[in-house]
Amino acid sequence: MSKRIKQLVTEFFGPAREITGVAEVELDLETTASARDLLRALAASYPALKGPIIDPEGWSTAPYILMNLDGRETIQNYDLELQPGARVLLMSALAGG
């Protein structure tokens, strides 16, 4: 019997989009999956994210890359359990111009 799953959408901006070549991706994860689990799943789907976007040792975002939840808050705690239907944004830390 398969584990229960939830669908999570990740939207890519800036360098993350350049690397993946897509604007967003929908992944199926276990219901208890955390932000860190999502980063692992993303790295499995797009290995080139490892390094410039995802830190494959701590399984957090790389320096100057932010993980944002629903466009409202930056994820600081990667153990945060993501709710079904959540939209996660991978973007550059913004500055100036």
Binding site: E11, F13, G14, N68, G71, L89, M91, S92, L94, A95, G96, G97
Partner: peptide, 11 residues
Amino acid sequence: TVGNVLTLNRL
């Protein structure tokens, strides 16, 4: 810096 448009739009 023009890359800000899509991100700020999304935020």
